[in-house]
């Protein structure tokens, strides 16, 4: 029945804040809101340090999603929207963040956020989001020197992976591990196009391939695809991966293998890179404003 058909691609929403910090003693409170096409994040920073964040699904209405993400990040902190000194909006819905003071592209925010999350040695940042894929080269200050984005094609995005998770009735969180649980690495799915790859997968299943093997073949095709994108900007060390797919070990491990490069680990949640960068930009901007005011 349609009603109780499980939606295998759904992931869980969450929020977090640091109990050990007190916003009342902070001099500068800034926030970044990243309204993506699939998920939205809000990050709150106290004097340039991460304090609270949230990650949730984007609804049909961007301003509303921005508001909800922000409210959820604030939840339980006692802090209110009015208490934040500067807010930067980013992501595809960035111009629709009603309470923000400025909009900055997600490319610049990702580079800036990545610079903090991974340290200033990071030069290449790959962001694999729900409906797009970005490849960014940046300098030691987190300034972008080369970038490209692919948001036209579902191949190489979370959406493509969702289509597969759904086809195989596998929860999206489990795709990575299952795909690694194969005795021998199958050749990658040959079609890039998700539509054609889906029919290819259907025939592989009919040929007796296990779900795990099909997932392995798709994860590896996806990695191959992303390598193609990275080659266009030229990969430089250190390398980091952010976005939802960074949590999919099946793609990450294969990508590292193909690039011959290990991705840096971060103690931060990789999905908040854009919002974190936005909050950092907010800090710079508010400080600049204060200086001008003096």
């Amino acid at each position: 029945m349609a009603e109780d058909k499980k939606e295998f691609w759904r992931w869980k929403e969450y929020n977090w804040h640091d109990d050990t910090k007190d916003w009342k003693s902070a001099e500068t409170i800034t926030a970044g809101v990243d309204v993506g096409s699939v998920s939205s994040q809000a990050v709150i920073m106290l004097d340039g340090e991460l304090y609270a964040y949230s990650n949730m699904r984007t609804g049909s209405d961007s301003p509303d999603s921005a508001r909800k993400a922000m409210d959820w990040a604030l939840e339980g902190t006692g802090l209110t929207l009015e208490g934040i000194h500067f807010i930067v909006g980013t992501g595809y819905g960035r111009v629709n963040v009603p309470f923000s003071n400025r909009a900055i592209t997600e490319i610049a925010c990702h580079a800036r956020g990545g610079n903090m999350m991974y340290g200033n040695t990071v030069r290449t940042i790959l962001d694999m989001g729900g409906q797009d894929c970005k490849a960014i080269l940046c300098d030691e200050r987190g300034k972008v020197s080369n970038f490209l984005m692919n948001d036209k094609c579902a191949a190489g995005t979370g959406r493509g992976m969702e289509v597969f998770a759904d086809l195989l009735a596998v929860p999206i969180e489990e795709v990575g591990e299952l795909s690694l649980d194969v005795e021998e690495e199958p050749p990658p799915v040959s079609s890039t196009c998700v539509v054609f790859a889906k029919s290819e997968a259907t025939s592989l299943l009919r040929d007796g391939w296990s779900k795990k093997r099909v997932l392995a073949a798709y994860c590896s095709a996806m990695a191959l695809r992303v390598v193609g994108l990275l080659e266009r900007i030229g990969v430089e060390k250190d390398f980091a991966i952010t976005g939802g797919i960074a949590k999919n070990s099946g793609v990450v491990i294969r990508l590292e293998r193909q690039l011959g490069l290990k991705a840096l680990q971060s103690k931060y949640d990789t999905q908040i890179a854009g919002a974190l960068g936005a909050a950092l930009f907010a800090k710079t901007l508010v400080e600049k404003k204060r200086k001008q005011a003096v």
């Binding site: 049909s60 409906q131 036209k152 094609c153 579902a154 959406r159 493509g160 289509v163 196009c193 998700v194 539509v195």
Partner: peptide, 13 residues
């Protein structure tokens, strides 16, 4: 949408 997959979601909305 310029992609068959994304167009499907667009059509649904």
């Amino acid at each position: 949408a310029q992609c068959a997959v994304f167009a499907e979601s667009e059509v649904v909305s």
